[in-house]
Design a protein around this nucleic acid. Structure first.
Length: 259
DNA sequence: ATGGTAGCCCTGCTA
């Protein structure tokens, strides 16, 4: 089983590239973030014709998350539900479904903008709610995989140059602690199971200033997997070619193979 | 050099 995550930065602008990706990548499950469209505009029929069932939690101008699956898709759920107060209430940032026996969650964690802002505080709160939601709805014994744009580089090996991120978001101790808290519950950063210490392996490069061509990137698109999923993990790949060519997203797909 | 680009909508906001 092959699962993947991709922040497409507008599905409308990226549909050709997504269809191209589905044509060569042979993914069974694909989590999308930043679809930036309403549910009414979501091209479920086009995906169905390519063999994928789908669930989309859309908003419109911003955010928007989806799951595509060709190994079944049942029990779809959107957001944290009524038992939790979402610090970014109204944003479409989480959707879940069971695909091929695994509870798949597609997340778009808030960016946080600047350290010290209200947005940053609520980013950390969003992580707290995610952990509470996880603990309330699942056991670490479950087969669960939370894939998406976490807007956090978990270690210094996940940024192109540590000095370039002094005082910046995505690398603070508080944000990294939030990832650690999810891992302490019973999840693993699946990419680091395959590549424990290798650096300069990125999933996002800013469009500006030739950052991609100059290898100035970060690894913020992650799959956090419970033990039974992690134990099945055989390989992980970053599809750098998807960052090249005509109208690329600023993120690449990150792909995981399970036995 | 507080720059740069891309995508959305009301010509600014978000990333």
């Amino acid at each position: 089983m092959r699962i993947a995550t991709w922040n497409v930065n507008s599905l409308k602008a990226r549909m050709d590239r997504v269809e191209e990706f589905l044509g060569y990548a042979e993914v069974d499950v694909l989590c999308l973030q930043e679809t930036k469209m309403t549910n009414a505009a979501f091209p479920a029929l086009a995906f169905h014709e390519l063999g994928y069932d789908s669930v989309h939690h859309g908003q419109g101008q911003w955010n928007g998350v989806a799951i595509l699956s060709r190994v079944g898709l049942t029990d779809p759920a959107e957001g944290f539900g009524s038992k939790f107060t979402d610090p970014y209430e109204g944003d479409a940032r989480l959707v879940a479904a069971t695909c091929g026996g695994i509870r798949i969650v597609s997340v778009y964690v808030p960016n946080g903008r600047e350290v010290g802002t209200d947005h940053f505080v609520r980013k950390l709160e969003w992580f707290s709610v995610l952990r509470a939601w996880l603990a309330a709805n699942h056991s670490p014994e479950d087969a669960i995989a939370i894939l998406g744009d976490y807007n956090v580089a978990p270690t210094d090996n996940d940024v192109w140059k540590v000095e370039a991120f002094e005082g910046a978001t995505h690398v603070t101790e508080a944000e990294r602690d939030a990832i650690t808290a999810l891992c302490d519950w019973g999840l693993s950063d699946a990419f680091r199971v395959v590549y424990p210490i290798q650096d300069q392996l990125f999933s996002y490069w800013d469009y500006r200033a030739g950052d991609f061509q100059s290898h100035r990137g970060v690894r913020i698109d992650l799959a956090l997997t419970s033990k039974s999923v992690t134990d099945r993990l055989t390989w992980a790949v970053i599809d750098r070619n998807a960052r090249k060519g005509t109208k690329p997203s600023d993120h690449t797909p990150v792909i995981f193979d399970l036995d």
